[in-house]
Amino acid sequence: MKKIFLILLIIFILQIPAMAKATDGIDIADYLPQDIIDEYNISEDYDFISESKSAFFEEFINNRDLIIKFLYQSAALLFLQVAAKFLLDENDSGILKCVDLSANIVFSLGIYGIIERITAETVLFVSKTLELSAGVSALQTAIYSAFMPSAGAAFSKVQTLVISAMAFVSQKLFVPFFACLCAVSIASSVFGEKYLSDIIKTVRNGVCIALTLIMSISLIIITAVCKSATNLSVITQKTIRLASTSLFPIVGSLLGDAANSVVASFKAIINTSGILGALCIVLMIASPLVIMVLLRAALLILRILCSFFGADGLYKTAADFGALSDIAFAFCLFASIMSLFLITSISNFG
């Protein structure tokens, strides 16, 4: 079911540019309520949506083309592997091993470009979300501190701690850690050792558990500080509950349960900052997630094809790099859930 959902999702995503083109002539102001237009001072000349949309779709099309190129390359490699098995005598295993090895190496070199981009996008994504949280928290904590000095200061300390910790992890730990894992994945594809694949899978599970624990502890602390001063809204409480329970299943059902947290947080954002605020956040954070979702879908399609044609080496390499993209995706989800939660808790504070 999850596979069917993912395939439908990728078909839908591939159609997005066409839909965007179809909506080019539409004025968004016609569809917004008058109070929102007045509140955000949207004039007829102000074309934020079109500009953001075009930048977002330009990047989206670049990412899509990159993934499609990668899929073509992988399909060509798969075809050559199958052709080698078909054409060569099974006794001639030396040549077959050479073909398998070179196919795995070419695949690794091809996917490394995408993984490198994902690493950069993940760091950029986390820094963007942290900037957003830090900006909103600095402004609103200052306002709340004026009315509730003691609670406001405590809340500010917790926020600063969470944001600094996330910034440290994303800037100092994530990139070298991810680079090491990438090197292990490439080595695994070349040497074909099972224990290297096991290392990557174990690290992926460990990272997801660690992120869940960190998130739960942070959310408990923030919730405790918030509750000491005020009552949280129902949506924010729901966000806390979902966020603290949903990241762990990232290992099993990534797009299912973990997405609930984002949806709940997103509802909270709409509730507090309006549709335009939510749209700004979506356009800001969606771009890095798109390439990861596209890569996951591409790897899933590739693994289905590999298992169908019996290309075990390529299947294993695709699975290793899939685990790497899972880690980046988990980290992005962690950052987005934490940031969304920080923003919603700030907005509901007081």
Binding site: K69, Y72, Q73, A76, L77, L80, A83, A84, L87, L88, D89, D92, I95, L96, C98, V99, S102, A103, I105, V106, L109, G110
Partner: peptide, 20 residues
């Protein structure tokens, strides 16, 4: 598409088939 590595695989495959 700039798949430079695939040429190597084709060469290996060709060598394999001819020698076979």
């Amino acid at each position: 598409y700039g798949f430079s590595g695939i040429k190597v695989i084709i060469a290996v495959l060709a060598i394999g088939v001819i020698s076979d």
